[in-house]
Each structure stands twice: as structure tokens, then as C-alpha cells.
């Protein structure tokens, strides 16, 4: 009975949400699109930060690799954007594997600092036009639009459905992941690495896998961003981008899918509502981070503790 009501409530919310673009203007639909993009990014970071407990503050680097892969392959070789989504994901995943391998053993705050260093080095590399293909500080213009069966997605209203479809896929996939052997192993090593190692979990390998998976997903999101914006530049992927994604996960509730989505609405959507105070919004978020950590350090919607019912 109760679960039925909850399902109905969810269904109604989702249907109402999907009708939103019909009543909103371009601007607000675009805001919702950004919320969607950041929700996916937050969910991908959630694998690393929430499930595995690895302090990764360089997530924008993976996002950037995905976006740049798509931009370069699309503008130079004319590969269709939708086809590039998995390709860019693979590039980001390979990058993560190479970069994360030597630093994966670093504990807590050292990892945080090194990942900040990683994203900064990548940004400087992009500005300096590494290999002459990244367009330097001007970035890359004229990235193509996605095309499905001859229908070109151009307007924010059309992107809305593409992006939120991707959010839905992400939620479905990560929900499955959370309850899988892999997800449980990550939770275990977050809670107690030594015990996890003692129980036969190859912690270094699982940590690396968490990085690779999170990066793969962020890379795919980068393609959506690149095609939506039509243009990318190194400044879109600076360190503060990583901080915003980090805040979404921490404030929403790390390890909880609903929490991360709520976090995306609050961190990305709310400032648009209070645009008059645009300058003070970072100040407000900084203060919110401190207050949240003092009074509710598990985030707004923390993950529910798992229950395992024994067969009688």
C-alpha cells in the first residue's frame, strides 16, 4: 500500500517535470538543462566520492577530456555527436586510469590536493594548446548538434529531453550499481579499508575502477555539454567547476542518488532564482558548507542504511 503511494507520487512528479518545458521560456529550460548536466556529473562523482569515499576534487578534468574529445573529433573529422558520447567516455576513462593509477594509494586529503593539481595542470595544458589541437585559450567553436533519425536537436526544449533522458539512464544504472557486488565492495572499503582488504577485496583495483567508471560517465557528460554549448574553452573546466560538483555531492548527501539530484537543484538551480544576489552566492555556499558540516555532515538526504532480510 505504502510503496504503491510512493510510486504514484514519483510517477506524478516525473510526468509534471517532463511537461515543464511547455510552460517555461527558453531561459528557464536552459537552467533545467544545466541542472540535469550537473546532476549527471554529481552522480558520476558520487561513485568516487560517495560510494568509495575517495576525495576527488579534479572531476572537471574528466569532464573536460570528454568535452574536448568530442569537440576535436567532431570539428576535425565530422564524427556525429551521439556516436561520440561513448567514445569520449572511453577517452576520459583511459585518462583516469593512467592518471589515477600512481596516486590511488594516497590517503584522504593528499588525494584531494593531488586531484586539484591534476585539474590545474590539464587546464594549463589546454590553454597552452597542447599538441596544437585544443585551440588554446580561445577554445573550440562550431561543435555539431546531435541528430536522431534526421531530427536535429537544437533548441533548449529539445535538449531538455535528451539531457534528462540521460539523467534517467544514469539513475537507473547507478541504482543497480549501488546494490551490486561492486557497489557493496566500494561501500565496504569506504567504511573500513583494512577490513575490506582482509575480506579479500582488492582495494587498489576497486578504487581504480571507481575512478575509471566515474571518469567514463563524466566524459560522456562532457559531450552533452559541448554539443549544447556549441563551443568550449579551458575556463569552462577550471578548478571551481570541480568544487561545484564536489559541493553538489557533499551538500546533497554523498552516496545517495536522490540527495545528489537535490544537491544539483540547490547548487545550480537556486542561484538562478536569486540572481539579484549573484555576487554573494558563492559566499552563501561557502557559509552553507560550514554550517552543513557542523550540523548535518552527512548531507541533506543521506543514503538509507542497507537492510538485508534473512530467509527464515
Amino acid at each position: 500500500m505504502k510503496t504503491k503511494q510512493i510510486i504514484t507520487a514519483y510517477a506524478v512528479t516525473i510526468i509534471l517535470f517532463l511537461c515543464c518545458p511547455a510552460f517555461l521560456n527558453r531561459y528557464w529550460v536552459d537552467v533545467l538543462n544545466n541542472v540535469g548536466l550537473y546532476a549527471i556529473l554529481g552522480l558520476s562523482l558520487n561513485v568516487i566520492l560517495g560510494y568509495a569515499g575517495l576525495f576527488n576534487m579534479g572531476h572537471a578534468a574528466f569532464y573536460a577530456i570528454g568535452a574536448y574529445t568530442a569537440a576535436i573529433l567532431n570539428t576535425k573529422f565530422g564524427v556525429p555527436v551521439l556516436l561520440l558520447i561513448p567514445v569520449a567516455g572511453v577517452f576520459a576513462a583511459v585518462f583516469a586510469a593512467v592518471v589515477a593509477r600512481p596516486i590511488i594509494h594516497l590517503r584522504g586529503d593528499y588525494l584531494l590536493i593531488v586531484t586539484i593539481g591534476m585539474v590545474e595542470i590539464l587546464r594549463i595544458a589546454l590553454i597552452n594548446d597542447l599538441f596544437g589541437i585544443t585551440g588554446g585559450s580561445n577554445g573550440i567553436y562550431g561543435i555539431g548538434r546531435p541528430e536522431i533519425f534526421g531530427f536535429k536537436i537544437k533548441k533548449p526544449h529539445e535538449f531538455f529531453y535528451l539531457i534528462w533522458l540521460f539523467v534517467a539512464i544514469t539513475v537507473f544504472f547507478f541504482n543497480r550499481l549501488e546494490n551490486s557486488r561492486f557497489g557493496r565492495a566500494l561501500n565496504f572499503l569506504r567504511e573500513d579499508e583494512v577490513a575490506a582488504e582482509g575480506s579479500g577485496i582488492n582495494t587498489a583495483w576497486y578504487k581504480l575502477l571507481a575512478f575509471i567508471l566515474g571518469a567514463f560517465w563524466a566524459g560522456m557528460t562532457g559531450v552533452l555539454y559541448a554539443t549544447k554549448m556549441n563551443f568550449i574553452s579551458p575556463e569552462s573546466f577550471n578548478f571551481w567547476e570541480s568544487v561545484v560538483i564536489f559541493m553538489i555531492v557533499i551538500l546533497g548527501g554523498s552516496g545517495s542518488i536522490m540527495g545528489v539530484i537535490l544537491g544539483a537543484f540547490l547548487v545550480v538551480g537556486l542561484p538562478e532564482v536569486f540572481r539579484d544576489f549573484a555576487n554573494a552566492r558563492m559566499l552563501f555556499f561557502g557559509a552553507a558548507m560550514i554550517v552543513m558540516m557542523i550540523f548535518r555532515n552527512e548531507g541533506l538526504i543521506p543514503p538509507k542504511p542497507k537492510k538485508f532480510v534473512l530467509d527464515a
Binding site: 586529503d109 568544487v243 559566499l283 557559509a287 560550514i290 558540516m293 557542523i294 555532515n297
Partner: peptide, 28 residues
Amino acid sequence: RPLRESPRLSAVVSALGASIVLSNGIML
């Protein structure tokens, strides 16, 4: 000080928050 007994991540996040507050306070 309120986070002395909390998990390490909480203190790190609080420090980041303090950094954002200070730099944006200076900007304002």
C-alpha cells in the same frame, strides 16, 4: 572547533567553505 571530533572529510569541507567565504567576502 565544532568539527574537532567529526570525520576528516567534514573538517576538510568546512575548510573549503571557509576559503570560499573569505575570498568572496574580500571580493564583496
